[in-house]
Computed example of a mutant assay.
Amino acid sequence: MEVITSERRRRHWSRADKERIVAAALQPGATILSVARAFGVHSSQVFRWRQQLRGKEALPGFAAVTIAADPHAAAARTQGLIEVEIGTETRTRISGPADVATVTAVASALRAGS
């Protein structure tokens, strides 16, 4: 049997505390569950705070694209070339005829990976 001697009240977190907890959850290798347990909150609360603190800035949008001159551009125009770089580690290059099926497959693969 458990005897409750006081009334349990909701905890109120300051914005600074919420930001600190959300920042800890965004660290590489951190999980929401481990961070929530470390700070004594429920994992759904960390998800909610992350969404609230993110605001409208994290809405999906267009990525910046840079069009650079390619020294092999003349050959690429006659052969066909699709090249997509994401960050510094991901590069996809498809040479040859760029038919509709190939372009659709590349776009679908990129969309599935994001």
Rank of each mutant, 00 (worst) to 15 (best):
F47I: 15
G87H: 10
A16S: 10
F62D: 09
R111Q: 10
I21S: 06
L53Q: 04
F47R: 13
T102S: 07
T66N: 11
A24Q: 07
E7L: 13
G40W: 07
G55M: 06
I32W: 00
D70Q: 14
S114N: 11
I94F: 10
G87C: 06
W13F: 14
I82N: 05
A74G: 01
T31V: 02
T78S: 13
I4C: 08
S6A: 12
Q52E: 15
H12V: 12
S6T: 13
E85I: 08
R111T: 12
A30H: 01
T66Q: 11
R37N: 11
A58M: 11
F62C: 09
L33F: 09
Q45K: 12
T78Q: 12
A75V: 08
A30I: 00
E2T: 12
G29W: 02
P28S: 02
T66M: 07
G40Q: 11
R91F: 02
V84D: 05
R91S: 02
R111C: 09
A64W: 07
T104A: 13
A24G: 01
E19D: 09
A24H: 06
F47G: 03
E83A: 13
V35C: 01
A23Y: 01
L81A: 04
L53F: 07
A109T: 14
I86E: 11
S44V: 10
P71I: 01
G40C: 08
A25N: 01
G80Q: 00
R9E: 14
T90S: 13
R10A: 12
R111G: 06
A23F: 03
S108L: 03
A107I: 10
E89Q: 11
L53Y: 06
A63C: 10
G113R: 03
F39L: 00
